[in-house]
Structure formats: C-alpha cells, structure tokens
Design a protein around this nucleic acid. Structure first.
Lengths: 339, 339
DNA sequence: GATCATTGTGCAACCGGTTGCATTTCAGGG
DNA sequence: CCCTGAAATGCAACCGGTTGCACAATGATC
C-alpha cells in the first residue's frame, strides 16, 4: 500500500515501489554519473513519468550540502540600469542551473539580517550587486563562510572578497580627459551620494586629472543616483548662476535628470552646457536622450561574476580576486565634438 | 565531543548539547507558539548565540511542508516599469517573511520547465508577473497543485487561477474617451505585440468606443513593448504619410519611443500629434518626458497579489478570484487640453 | 567451467529539523 | 503533605532524499 500520500507529493518511495527497485536505485538514476544499469534506469524512468515525479532539490541539499541557490542582493531597485543587471544575472545563473534568491536591501543595510537569512536558506553563494555598499557588507558573508562576489564594488589591492567591476578612479580620469580634449575650461563634477564608494572614486580620478591640468574644479553631490536628484541638483546649480561649461555626472540617470534641468532652463546641450554620464544604460542610447557617456561593461562583469561564484562553489578556498574591467567613451550628442 | 563539524555548520544538536537539553527543546524555542519554559529558553538562546546558530529553513521545510519561498516569474526584463514591479514585490514579500525565487522567462515560455523547477524547490506559491503570457501559463502551476496568482493578467469571469490586474478593456475605453473629449478626430492605436492579451484587450475597448463615436480607427502593432519598437513603428507611420492626430500607445515605453520619433521628424507634441500611454511608470513623470498616460495602480495590485498568495498558503482550496483595479488619467503634456 | 575484476543493487545510517506521544515537572488547591 | 491538572520535556519516528559498504550479478579471462 503506497502509504497515505497526504500532501499529494510523490516521493522517491512511490517511484521505487512502482518500479520494483530500491530507493537508492531511484536516487541514482536521477544523479548524474551514478552507477545504474540501463534496465533499471528504464524501469525507474517509466515509473517516474507515469507518477509525474520530480526530485525534491531541497531534500537532496540536506545531504549533498548544495542547494544551487544563489543569493542575489541589491539595494538599487530604482535605477533603470538595474533592470539590465537583473536580466543578465538571472539568465546567466539559470544557464548554469543556479537559482537566484532575490534580496531587496532598499531600506535595510544591516548585513547581519541578510546573512542570517541567506544562511538559513543555505544558499551556495551570494552575489552582492551594488556600487554603493561598503566592502564590509560583502565581507560579512565571507566571514560567515559563504562564497561571495561583490559586483560593481570598490576595487582594492588585496580584497577580502571577490570584487568585480570597473575602475571608478580610471573612469573619473577618462571623463576628465574627455572633457579637456574637447576644450572645456570650466568643468564640474555632479556626483551621486557622497557616501557611495563609486562616487568617491569617480571624483578622485576626475579631480586628479582636472587639477593636474591647472583647471579649476567645482563639485557637488546629488542625494542619490536618481533622475529627481540629478534634476534638483542641476536646477540648484543653474539658479545659483554661472554654471560650468561641462559636467561629469555620477551616472546616466543622474545625467538625464541634469539634462532635463538644463533644457527646462532654456539652455542648449551641448552648445551651452556639456554633459557626460557613466554606465551607458540602454536608455542612454534612446534617440531622445542620446547621452554621451562612459560604457560600463555590465555584460562582461556579470558573466565574470557568475564564473567566479561558480568556481567558488567547487573550491571555497580560492583566494579572493579583484578584477577590473575597461570602460570606454560612447560618443553621442551631449558633448561638443573634438576640435 | 561535539562530533566532527566537517562542513562547519552548527546544528540543532550542537546547541542542544551545549545547552544540556534535548534537540526538541531547541527546536521548540525557535518555533513560535511552542511550549517551552523560560528557563530552558534562556539556556538555549544563550547557547545558540555563543555558537552563532541559525536554523536551517530548508531542513525544517521537509517536515513542515513550507519553505516560505515564492516563485516570482516574469518575462518582462526589458521594460523599465518592471523595476518598480520587482521592487514592490520583493519588499512586499520580504515584509511577510516570504522569499522571492526569481525566474526569468525571457526566452522561454514552456510552462512545464518552470513548473518542474519551482516544484523541485518546493516553493509555497508562485506569482506570475506578466501582461503578455496566456492564462494557460499560470494554470499550469494551479494544475500542479501550487498556489498561484497571475498579476497583470487577462481578466475573465470564472478564472481557473487568481488573476489580478487592471481591466484592459476599460483602460482602452478610457483612452478613447479621453482622446475624443479633447476633440481629436483622426485617432489611432499603436499597440504592443498583437499576441499579448493586454494588447488585444486594450484594442478591443479602444476600438469599441472610437467606432461607436462614428470615427475612423487605424491601428498597428509594435513588435514588443520597448522604446525601439515604438520608435520604429511611429517612424514607419510618419514615413507612410498622413499620420493620425492622436495615438493611444500600448504602454509608456512604447509611447516614449513614439514621442522620440515624432520629435525626430520635426513635428510637435501635442500641437501636431497627441500621445497617450499606459502604466504611468516613474519615468513618465520625468520633466523631459512628461507623458500623459493612464495610471496603472501597481502598488495596489502587487499588495493585493501578495495578500492573495499569502491567503492561499493557508488555504489552497480558496476559490480563485479575478480582481480588477481602476485606472485613471494622469494629465501631463502630451495631449492638448480639454477644449 | 572456474576465477577474478567490474559493475549494479539494496541496506541502513545519515543530512537538520519537527512533532505525536508518553513521561516528568511543577504550581496550586485541599 | 498529598493530589490533580496543566505545562514542559525527551524519545523516537519521520520529512525526502543520498551514500558508504557489503553483497550479488555480470562479464572477461584462461
């Protein structure tokens, strides 16, 4: 008698009974590389399909120690660029048979809670996708023994955890050189929140080059990486009078906010004011935006992040690596052309 | 001797040993409403914190039959509105102690695979967030015995599964009335993909009212809900000559593409051509876009979807419900004002 | 046909918790 | 101080799989 199937779930037992083999045999037919004869495999598969059996991944995780779930943690649920990021991460993880367990950190930056949560769910690894969180956040997972990669995080020489992303300092330098090449003199930095590591680094590289050229540099910060914050800050700058000739904005969405402020005030881009962004999100290429920006190679970074996390699953003692990816200028319509 | 802690995981046993109680006692201190004396609870909690123990949610799911994981399935990873959707879903689920397991269906619409996958992970329920998938997709989960709600799905009278969203037919009517009120005569529908249920319904309502008013109605479809598709289709219409006076576009992102095409061709909005969108995504309110559109009450729909799925977890025999939410016009700058 | 190396198979213990049941502890009442 | 009922506790079986080990079946070799 196939026992009370109270919750209706079909288990290994049921299949074994129907196929007339042991539970081990059923288990083995469903684990790759196990030793099963063609004959029993056939019997088991037949029984499994007639019952509509599919193995319980969570139960097996108990003994194998692997859930094939990856925590995907982010705090950027308002920046359009992150839609591309989620798309690439989910597709990339799925392609490797990994499942993203999503954690929205928007209002919550206490690492302990996320760590406890993701440990409770025994995720095999964690991807922290954020350019604004401090390194300590990802390190918390590492300290808890969970493989982790910090995507879009701050680069440092000897990191505690894997960190993959662009060199924000170099990106700042690139922005500065680009503006200088085009003959801009009164140049400004309109950054994201001053607390974000990405903002700090972009500013550092930018300021270094501008000042080395003997130019003045004014700078200010938007309250966060958002359209409204970019627009508000640019409106403030315009109202204060004597805006700069060109602005390096913290990222694309901030740039778009700034552009809208400039348009509202009747000034023209790039004739009166030039703007360069960073990220090259899809929208930056839209014909009505046409933002000159610095390309952030998301697809590469994400593919590499997944490679690294997958490698860490097999060998958690890997030394953490900090990998940098090159940025490049995408010339569109918000800077005047090279002289 | 606390047994070989090979993988370093701290279990119930370890805590029980240290606290000098049985495993049951430890288990009970961590399950709400169980009967434990204050004294043993204190001992257990002390031991748990010194060991850094946190219960394994997956192991407990084995006996309780609940994982508190919800499959969040979508195929819209390119429409900016979905960033808002993911933000609201993840926050709402987390607030109830539920965890979203994300499934990206972008290139994949075979329901069986997703069903098999989510059953393998024993999710307690599934939310299908898509306005383009057929009802049969969500029904697949229902047939497999998994509670499911289809958010933004097509409304029908006696649904097989919970479906929550706007009344797309009513929205189409609303768009038509809005255009007629403003005196537009040559009116057109620029829809999303003709295969999407949302497109079909919006068209049905829209066409009904336009034709009832004795006006002509021309219509065409973009290849998908995206900026590029909207722009391409509008460029084609403009090149073909004699465009309509006003367009009801399938959604906001399509509208923005169409707007950009109109601007590119030197025509003015709303003087030469009016545009009305649908969704009222964040970006529609950006000052440089300022799209007149129909508000889709995402926050309400998502909150209700979570309520419904949470209720289904306790009682999977609930009769499926189809709930409709009201849309409203958001007046901005892409339609001429009421006469 | 006997011998030996290879698979293939089932038993039983285990992964980390939960829970029904029997037993013990305890507080309050007489 | 004893009795009673309720609360607390531990035992042991179980959730749905996996896996080491011993044994059985199979095939190759001489």
């Amino acid at each position: 008698m196939p026992r009370e199937t109270a919750r209706g779930t079909i288990t290994l037992r049921d299949v074994a009974l129907l196929a007339g083999v042991s539970r081990s045999a059923v288990s083995r037919t469903f684990t790759a590389g196990a030793s099963v004869s063609d004959k029993t495999r056939a019997k088991v598969e037949k029984a499994a399909t007639t019952l509509g059996y599919s193995p319980n991944a969570l139960a097996s995780s108990l003994t194998t120690g692997r859930t094939k779930m990856i925590g995907l943690v982010s705090n950027n649920f308002h920046n359009p660029v992150f839609l591309e990021v989620f798309d690439l991460f989910t597709k990339g993880l799925q392609a490797r048979g990994l499942r993203p367990l999503l954690v929205n950190l928007t209002d919550e930056v206490r690492p302990e809670d996320s760590i406890r949560l993701l440990r409770a769910y025994s995720v095999d690894g964690v991807i922290v996708a954020s350019s604004t969180l401090p390194a300590s956040f990802a390190e918390g997972f590492h300290d808890a023994g969970v493989p982790v990669v910090h995507s879009f995080g701050r680069h440092i020489a000897n990191p505690q955890v894997n960190v993959l992303g662009i060199d924000n300092i170099a990106a700042g330098r690139l922005a500065a050189r680009t503006l200088i090449e085009r003959g801009y003199q009164r140049i400004a930095f309109l950054g994201g929140p001053a607390t974000a590591t990405s903002t700090q680094d972009r500013f550092a590289g930018f300021a270094e080059v501008i000042r080395a050229s003997g130019l003045d540099l004014s700078f200010s910060y938007a309250s966060n990486y958002s359209f409204d914050a970019g627009r508000a800050e640019m409106l403030r700058l315009l109202a204060a009078g004597a805006p700069a000739e060109a602005y390096f904005c913290g990222d694309d969405v901030l740039s778009i906010g700034a552009l809208s402020a400039i348009q509202s005030s009747g000034l023209r881009v790039p004739e009166d004011i030039g703007v360069i962004g960073l990220n090259d999100m899809e929208m930056a290429g839209w014909a009505n935006i046409n933002l000159t920006t610095i390309h952030n190679p998301f697809a590469q970074i994400i593919a590499a992040s997944i490679d690294v996390i997958a490698a860490s699953l097999n060998d958690n003692s890997r030394a953490p690596e900090a990998r940098l990816f090159d940025c490049s200028i995408v010339e569109r319509g918000t800077l005047r052309p090279l002289p």
